[in-house]
């Protein structure tokens, strides 16, 4: 199967390329026209095939692509992938504007290809267990979801970069219930740049009365989370997509040791994507979920501007 990784802009793009390189039956091609120097240095490390232009990648006729560009270029790449009938795994969020996300969903629908979201925390047996448990009523009636995801500082604002992974977890457990109302506040204390919010709190109310409230600011150290608490009227359950397996002290960094635990969720996600590319039956969030997340993020930006809750249509 021919799979292309489109850009190394996203911090997980190299991980995806490495996992795909090692997957049996995958022919991998990479490109990074937005930053050729970055692209070259990554493929030198990986030993992966590389071409210089988007045109060259699409002329190669990939059967599946992973879109890991800056968010502003994702729509164009997804639409071009749909044109060549390639299944798409796209980083979150799909876009900043709902109109762009809608166009991406429509393009993939029309082409008959799957649009899947790169939201690793939604994959794996641990989260599946949480999801089943909630469906089976272990928390009673679910009322509230509190979550935190602190990504490392990136070019984009915290809302654009970090909210989506949490919203995907909520969306999955709520079976795609669209949001009714969004309230958000943000600041730029850590970034020092007014246009790049480095802290954001978002509260979402759903038509069923459920409430999700998330903290999606930048992390000063390593990324933290996603960590989500599902609260019901009988019990509450925590899900940590990034648990610590081992702690201790590391002399080399003169800091705390953190050995990650849990499953390799990127690997689980990619196997699901590749495995479902023939039949369109992936288990993770799809383009419609991505569109719902973008609508919430867009409303969150509006709420930050107005200081009031925003109804989502």
């Amino acid at each position: 199967m021919k799979v292309a990784v489109l850009s190394f802009a996203h911090e997980r793009a190299e991980t995806y390329a490495r996992l795909l390189r090692d997957m049996p039956g995958i022919e991998l091609l990479t490109t990074d026209p937005d930053d050729p120097a970055r692209g070259r240095s990554v493929v030198d490390r990986l030993g992966a095939s590389y071409v210089d232009t988007w045109d060259a990648v699409f002329e190669w006729s990939p059967q599946a692509v992973v879109v890991t560009s800056e968010v502003g270029r994702r729509r164009e790449l997804v639409e071009r992938a749909a044109e060549v009938k390639a299944h798409v795994l796209c980083e979150q969020p799909l876009a900043i504007e709902a109109a762009d996300a809608k166009a991406m969903v429509d393009a993939c629908d029309t082409a008959g290809v799957r649009l899947a979201l790169a939201s690793p925390a939604c994959f794996g047996e641990a989260f599946a267990t949480v999801r089943r448990g909630i469906a089976d009523g272990v928390v009673g009636t679910l009322t509230t979801v509190h979550g935190v995801y602190r990504g490392t500082a990136e070019a984009g604002g915290a809302l654009a970069v970090n909210a989506a992974p949490l919203l995907d977890l909520v969306d999955t457990v709520l079976d795609g219930e669209p949001a009714a109302q969004v309230y958000a506040q943000a600041n730029s204390v850590l970034s020092g740049r007014p246009q790049a919010e480095s802290a954001a709190l978002v509260s979402v109310r759903y038509p069923s009365g459920k409430v999700a409230s998330i903290d999606c600011g930048w992390s000063l150290s390593a990324a933290d989370g996603p960590f989500v608490t599902f609260i019901g009227d009988r019990a509450s359950v925590d899900y940590n997509a990034n648990p610590r397996l081992l702690g201790g002290f590391d002399v080399e960094s003169a800091g705390e040791r953190w050995e990650p635990g849990g499953a390799d969720l990127c690997s689980v996600m990619l196997e699901d994507f590749i495995g479902s590319s023939g039949n369109g039956q992936g288990t993770g969030p799809d383009g419609q979920a991505g569109l719902r997340a973008v609508r919430i993020i867009q409303a969150a930006y509006e709420s930050v501007r107005t200081g009031q809750p925003v109804d989502v249509g």
Partner: peptide
């Protein structure tokens, strides 16, 4: 109860 407070300093 879930509340979001905006402080005069800009902190949340």
């Amino acid at each position: 109860g879930t509340a979001v407070l905006t402080h005069a300093s800009g902190a949340l």
